[in-house]
Every structure is written in structure tokens, then in C-alpha cells.
């Protein structure tokens, strides 16, 4: 099963990278080469990518990712970048590493949340501890030394991560 998933994703990536070789579509040579290389990649990674990979084929989940990236994540990046720009110019910083308690279940949710936190400047995930249900976040301007929820660091990201990583 994981062979098929890896094959589909590598082939889709190949199609995206080679679009426009005949008119707006693909020439036959590119398609054949794509099948060969996607098979090689899928065969060599079939034991690495894990068991629960069928969830990555759900189109609703991909729609959710696109909405998340364009809506809350992008808006968070805009706000946070303006904030860091202000701190670069004025030099007003109050750095510190805080422990942020989170309520997530699996690794995919931790990955999504900590990557989102790192992408928004001003916060930088240093370590994730699923056994303590906590993230350690370097914060450039600490306003609360022991936050009770991830709301103050990550806004609505935790809710999104829980839904997308299910």
C-alpha cells in the first residue's frame, strides 16, 4: 500500500515539474520516464514512509491544508513579520524559552503545529515533548512566562493542527 501512495505522489510531482512539454500537456517520453523514476522512488522508500499513509490521499484534507496555508497561517505570518520588523528597527526585545502546554495526539499534529509556530517569526520551536504534551518555544518578546494554553503563542493554530493531522 505504501508503495502505491509513494508512487502516486512522486508521479504527481513529476507531472507538475514537466507540464508544458507538448503544448500545455505532457509528451509521451516524459510520461514514460516519470513512471520509471516514480517506481524507483516508491520502491526504495516503501519501508520508510509508514503505515497510515492512505490519509494523505484524502482530497478534503488537501483542501484543508490549502485553506489553512492561505488563511490563518499567512495572516499570522503577516502580523508576526511586522512585529519582528518593528523589533529589528527599535531593538526592543525580551527573549526567553517558555514551555507551552498543548493537547495533541499524534506526531503529524505536533509536526504541523511546531512548524507553524516556527514559520511565524517571533516564536521558534526548540523541542517538542509528546510525553509531557508540551512544546518548548523560544519567544522573542515574552509577555507571559508560564502560558496555560497555546493561544497566546500560536493563536488558532492548535485547533487547525488537531483537525488537519487526524
Amino acid at each position: 500500500m505504501s508503495f502505491i501512495i509513494a508512487f502516486i505522489w512522486s508521479f504527481v510531482l513529476w507531472l507538475v515539474l514537466t507540464a508544458g512539454t507538448r503544448g500545455m500537456l505532457w509528451s509521451a517520453e516524459e510520461l514514460i520516464a516519470g513512471i520509471i523514476f516514480a517506481s524507483i522512488v516508491a520502491f526504495s522508500t516503501r519501508n520508510i514512509i509508514g503505515e497510515k499513509t492512505t490519509r494523505f490521499l484524502n482530497p478534503l484534507r488537501w483542501f484543508g491544508f490549502v485553506v489553512y496555508a492561505m488563511g490563518p497561517l499567512f495572516w499570522g505570518m503577516v502580523k508576526a513579520n511586522l512585529d519582528v520588523a518593528y523589533r529589528v528597527i527599535t531593538g526592543k526585545i525580551k527573549p526567553g524559552i517558555v514551555k507551552v502546554p498543548v493537547d495533541l495526539e499524534n506526531d503529524a499534529q505536533y509536526t504541523i503545529l511546531s512548524n507553524s509556530i516556527t514559520l511565524t517569526p517571533g516564536t521558534l520551536t526548540i523541542d517538542a515533548c509528546p510525553e509531557e504534551k508540551a512544546l518548548y518555544v523560544h519567544w522573542i518578546h515574552v509577555t507571559e512566562e508560564e502560558p496555560k494554553t497555546s493561544e497566546i503563542v500560536a493563536g488558532s493554530f492548535e485547533k487547525w493542527a488537531r483537525r488537519l493531522g487526524k
Binding site: 527573549p95 517558555v98 515574552v142
Partner: peptide
């Protein structure tokens, strides 16, 4: 971290 107000990871 220099001038850190708190270092929970440490």
C-alpha cells in the same frame, strides 16, 4: 539565550 527572562528548556 542571552538576556533571557526565562529558560524552561534548560
Amino acid at each position: 539565550p542571552a538576556k533571557a527572562v526565562i529558560d524552561a528548556y534548560e
